[in-house]
Write a protein that binds this DNA or RNA. Structure first.
Length: 673
DNA sequence: TAGTGTTAGATTTTT
DNA sequence: TCTAACACTA
């Protein structure tokens, strides 16, 4: 309890009835969750296995587990459940697998697999074909699933024929998933909710297991996640929800920030604690943030304050063009890096859209400033990694159509689109998966005999390889498999340069190493079964970058969304312009309010200094357009802003001169040291 | 199946 | 203006 303020202590001590912690930005909310778990175990004697903490990202879960690891010895925290919503759902499904009618080894499809499945179903479904874009259909189906609607309910509630067609597609999709023994991400929440809702025995079983539930970033929960929370908590209501409506920036993705206020409705004995003391930022930063967010009509008032220090007025750099903006940010960072002896990791550049990063990257590279760009294509989105994953998935689940389709002709085996089309038809007619369809008599009749032979041979090979999988560790087996199919040969054939092929092959070696590492259970240290391994993999979205995140002394480039939860001494908020922030597609009230909160999130990332930048004119879709400063700048009191560069139109030569000056400063410094 | 032409669409994104 | 995804052709 030491070092906690009175509100934080109240939140930690409050045990037996439902609690909502409205935790302002930088108010130490993770600390509260961690301390509360420690308190539950140490002071209240709650068994660790009865405590469940839920986050949204793997990273957040890992961090929380690490912090608890620093506070409690291993034997006292054994059995503690810290995971994402989706991992919790997956574990529940695994334990209830028979009740749910799934076979062991079921697959979890990622967004790309699910989209591919929808595309192929869309071609088949006459009522839907041509009416809907695959992406839209995917989004709609996901919405329905998040609202816990079955295909027939979706059909009944559909407003027009497009929606009705989409509902029919949803029906196809659900059937196909069942046939493939597969789930998508939404199912990982939806299926547990349905089970706990409809099966009183299972509900009681789980409510006994979950003695105490803590939910982080509660404003980001969607309808089905909230339902899962309610069902797990039950009547006892031993729930701690921690969230901040001011940082609700994911409504566009289905989050329901109103779940915060629904808590009071659903739990009449709810207690609310507000955390308003900020431990991160100087007061000018918080004043700007408070003034901005006061204009949000949709959220509860909350005023941040801190004892960190007064702080300075925020600079607003008015630049001519986006190139100029990028250059000014880069030279500014370079300048402060040397002048204040401030390491590069102290700086972050934030922007609304990823495309804004490109010019900034170019400028940073020009000045040899190290940077880390978060976002972009992740390791797991690389084709070669997805291919290898698909092979491994097929080893665990022979009926995984998405995986089969991905690698059936990779490397080439002469099984082309026509064959797959016919095969798909057979599979859909009988509601079976593709491999089963290929084995059917009908397939032998309808397919070209040579191709059919190829196909069955390949399937035989898969089966044989599968039966050998148990004999050695998964990574080892995969190494052999990739050599057997001559994947490297395939890469060389695909790539123009030998170097590119090498690089992709190296990615695979990294993946194999990673596979080896994660093939053990986090708690027990025992090695995972193939099925467990594959399922764990499909949820671990990112290559563990913890060493890079902290150790690399580099400027961080992030979108405003990606910056949530992070903090930096010096923050640059770029593109403070109308139509960029707020974004042009977000003019209606709700969305505008979310844009404001996004800006709030950006501002509150800053610990010591905050610099806004904007341009006078920007090229947009090839057209030069005059730019107006963001209305959000006007919502901040003028005294807090120090505008620079108005009326001074720098020429390119002058800019280059600034850069050159900075460069010679570096040389001087380097010479000295 | 590689190569070329056409067209939409250009915000945020985790699991 | 740029790009990526696609449909079409040789």
């Amino acid at each position: 309890m030491q070092g906690l303020n009175p509100q934080q202590q109240a939140a930690v001590r409050h045990i037996d009835t439902p609690l909502l912690v409205l935790a302002g930005a930088g108010s130490g909310k993770t600390r509260v969750i961690v301390e509360k778990i420690v308190h539950l175990i140490e002071s209240k004697g709650t068994p660790a296995r009865g405590i469940w903490a839920v986050t949204f990202t793997n990273k957040a879960a890992r961090e929380m587990a690490e912090r608890i690891g620093q506070r409690l010895p291993a034997e006292r925290r054994r059995g503690l459940n810290i995971s994402t919503f989706h991992t919790l759902g997956l574990n529940l499904i695994r334990r209830e697998i028979r009740t749910l009618g799934l076979r062991p080894g079921f697959t979890v499809l990622d967004a790309e697999d699910s989209l591919n499945l929808i595309k192929s179903l869309l071609q088949q479904n006459e009522s839907a074909a041509g009416m809907i874009e695959p992406k839209e259909a995917q989004w709609q189906i996901s919405q329905w699933k998040n609202d816990l609607l079955t295909p027939s309910q979706a059909m009944q509630t559909s407003a027009d024929e497009v929606e009705a067609a989409c509902a029919s597609l949803y029906d196809d999709y659900a059937r196909q998933l069942t046939a493939c023994n597969a789930l998508d991400f939404d199912d990982l929440i939806k299926r547990p909710v349905e089970l706990l809702r409809d099966d009183a025995e299972a509900r009681e079983r789980w409510q006994n297991r979950v003695r105490y539930l803590l939910v982080d970033e509660y404003q980001d929960t969607n309808a089905s996640q909230y339902e899962l929370v309610r069902l797990l908590v039950g009547k006892l209501g031993r729930l701690t929800a921690v969230g901040d409506d001011h940082q609700s920036i994911y409504a566009w993705r289905g989050a329901r920030p109103e779940n915060l206020s629904h808590l009071a409705r659903d739990f009449p004995n709810l207690t609310t604690v507000k955390l308003e003391q900020n431990y991160r930022s100087v007061n000018t930063v918080l004043t700007a943030a408070n003034q901005l967010i006061a204009n949000d009509p949709t959220t509860q008032p909350k005023t941040l304050w801190s004892a960190v220090g007064p702080g300075e007025a925020h600079r607003v750099l008015v630049c001519d063009t986006a190139e100029d903006e990028a250059e000014r940010i880069a030279t500014d960072i370079l300048h402060r890096h040397f002048k204040d002896d401030s390491p590069y990791r102290n700086f972050a550049i934030l922007f609304r859209g990823n495309h804004q990063a490109r010019l900034i990257e170019q400028q940073l590279r020009k000045l040899s400033i190290p940077y880390i760009l978060t976002g972009g294509q992740s390791f797991f989105e690389r084709a070669e990694v997805k291919d290898a994953m698909a092979y491994l998935r097929l080893m665990a689940n022979p009926s995984d159509d998405a995986a089969l389709l991905r690698i059936i002709n990779t490397p080439r085996r002469g099984i082309g689109p026509t064959t797959l089309e016919r095969l798909g038809q057979i599979a859909r007619e009988r509601h079976v998966h593709l491999a089963a369809a290929a084995r059917s008599v009908t397939a032998a009749q309808r397919l070209d005999s040579r191709v059919h032979h190829q196909l069955t041979q390949f399937l035989d090979w898969l089966d044989a390889t599968r039966s050998r999988m148990d004999e050695q560790p998964a990574a080892e087996a995969m190494r052999g498999l990739l050599e057997e199919v001559d994947y490297f040969g395939y890469l060389r054939e695909q790539e123009n340069s030998a170097k590119a092929a090498e690089r992709r092959w190296t990615n695979l070696q990294d993946w194999l190493e990673w596979t080896e590492r994660i093939a053990v259970d986090n708690d027990s240290g025992e090695s995972l079964s193939l099925t467990e391994l594959v399922q764990k993999m499909s949820l671990l979205g990112i290559l563990e970058q913890k060493t890079r995140d902290q150790d690399d002394n580099a400027v961080r480039l992030l979108t405003l969304h990606a910056a949530k939860g992070l903090e930096f001494p010096h923050v640059y908020l770029s593109g403070m312009e109308e139509d960029l922030l707020p974004h042009q597609d977000c003019q209606e009230d709700d969305r505008l309010a979310e844009e404001r909160r996004l800006c709030f999130v950006g501002i509150t990332r800053a610990q010591r200094s905050l610099t806004f930048t904007l341009t006078r004119r920007r090229r947009r879709y090839g057209q030069w357009r005059d730019v107006r400063p963001s209305r959000f700048l006007e919502e901040v009191e003028a005294d807090l802003l120090r505008w620079e560069g108005i009326g001074v139109q720098k020429s390119e030569e002058e800019n280059r001169a600034t850069a050159a000056e900075a460069m010679s400063a570096i040389r001087a410094m380097l010479g000295k040291s």
